[in-house]
Design a binder for these strands. Sequence first.
DNA 1: ATGACGGTGTGGCACCGA
Length: 258
Amino acid sequence: MQLATWNINSLNVRLPQVLDWLATNPVDALGLQELKLVDEKFPFAALREVGYHAECFGQKTYNGVAILSRSPLRDVVRNIPGHGDEQSRVIAATLDTSDGPLRLVNCYFVNGQEPGSEKFTYKLGWLDALHRWIGEELQAHPRLVLMGDFNVAPEDRDSFDPVGLKDTIHHTVEERASFQALLKLGLTDAYRLFEQPDKSYSWWDYRMLGFQKNRGLRIDHILVSDALRDKVSACTIDRAPRKNPQPSDHAPVVVTLA
DNA sequence: ATGACGGTGTGGCACCGA
């Protein structure tokens, strides 16, 4: 089975591209981030027409997440339980497979703007809350996938300019430590289970020909729990949609489970 | 150091993203 994550930077604008992508990449489930629309405007009908159930957690203008799935989703959780948040950043749901239930947690991590800023403090608090909650989720759901736009470049090789961008947002010690703390809970970065091309990124700035010059960051990730680790047979970043007219600034990441 | 690009809102631009 295949699972994917994609920050589409406005579902209003990108719905045709999502439908196109699903037509050629008929993944079993897809986590979307940055819907930038309210639930009332979520395109349930268009997605149902191409075979996908959906659960969404929208918000006006900013944020917003959803999970699409070929099979029905159950036990949906929106945002981090016990962590008050005005922003719609997390949606979790269980899907039933022949190997048993699979818990999907799809997140749009906080950007954080700049170390030292109020938004950075919000990011670190959010990351702490996520860490606590994912620990609980793993207890309840051993077969768990944590995916989304993490807004963290875990290592220097995940950045086009690790020296120039040292200690800037996505690259700070605190953010990287929080990523490592998630792994310590019993999660593995599926992308790094395999040999990958150098300079593999999942996001490129719209400005200054970022994509054309491959000036990017790998900040979109799929982490799998220990129970799933041996089942992962591939993990790739699909750069093709970034070449579309009017692309999202992010590319989808796809994981294949045996 | 700044802005560049793109989306959104109720705009004549500002704010935000990463």
